[in-house]
Amino acid sequence: MQYTLLITGSPYQTKACHTALRFAKAALKKYPESIRGVFFYEDAVLIGNNLSQPPRDEINLLKEWQSLSEQHNTPLYLCIAAAVRRGILSESESKRYESKQHSLADHFQLEGLGTLIDLMNSTNKVIQFR
């Protein structure tokens, strides 16, 4: 059984990214190959902002996702349209928009919604966290 996780809830207004992280950890612990990919859409793309600095006595959600991705080789995709609109730009996107800054965190990739559809069609189930 392979899952795709679709996360749409903002990391600040909702616990979608937190709950999905717990789900992913639990699933991967039991079945190492069980998460095919994680796709962030809507405000959930804000998770990929490399400049965010949570208070030191709170969970660093970005780091948590990054280490999960590193440990399990789980790809983390941000919807490119949703991300760029919200100021999450990779180096190449920032060149394209003639911006001096880029803000995309390591281990995250900007992809079109077509990637979500590929994931949808190659896994048994998509679970949305909102």
Partner: peptide, 19 residues
């Protein structure tokens, strides 16, 4: 919010990919 817009965007992309 942007939710309706982004939901509709997803619907259009699904349709464009013949889903």
């Amino acid at each position: 919010s942007l939710s309706c817009k982004e939901g509709l965007d997803l619907a259009l992309v699904l349709a464009t990919f013949e889903q």
